[in-house]
Amino acid sequence: MNGAADNAIRLRGLDREYGDRAALSGVDLDLPSGASLAVLGPNGSGKSTLLRILATLLRPSRGEVSVLGSSLPDEAWKLRGRIGFLGHEPLLYEDLTGRENLEFQARLYGLPREEASARIESDLDLLGMSRRAGYRVSDYSAGMKQRIAICRAVLHRPALLLLDEPDSNLDPEGREAARALIGHPKEIGWASGMTVTRVAVSHDPERAKAEADQVLELAIGVGA
């Protein structure tokens, strides 16, 4: 795993500002394909901003950004459909049921109907949501929303997982169950035959350092 071609993510001098305020400055990173990266740092250090830039949801202000071989922001369109993004917001429609949300997502990603529904059922089952997937999202607790959001993020079997505090709102049981869907690439059940790279923002340095292959620590306004 050496050489730039094997890097899932390569950052050089990444800056991002909001108006006059710098959220990220001079972030460098090389993350090999198939590895797991933990992003650590205090509130306001730009962890979520970094994740949104990698997800093509936010433009970098300057610097070199290469994700899965596509350079951002110019080649962002090449990454569509290859990223599994789990942010602070669950990105679920409140007036649809959990299952309808996932079915909508599957159609948006052009998944074949049978394959999609098989996948949806098995993922829901893994997270213990099968029975409750028929309720509207607005009736869910935060933890249930998070579980459906996890299913949503991996439904299309992305090559890159970008997770912003994936454990938030989950009970210990839920965390354990979620590992099969969004854990370390080696633990992920659906990833057989493909290389999955994982980037997760975490607030638990001990656990993150133990579980991740690589750690990126952000400080306020400055990159690692």
């Binding site: 997800a55 093509t56 569509r80 459909g81 993004f85 942010g87 429609y93 409140e94 997502q105 948006l108």
Partner: peptide, 15 residues
């Protein structure tokens, strides 16, 4: 709903 429930983001991630 796209604005308040994240539909814009979800859409932008989709192919």
């Amino acid at each position: 709903p796209e604005r308040e429930e994240g539909g814009f983001d979800a859409f932008r991630l989709a192919p």
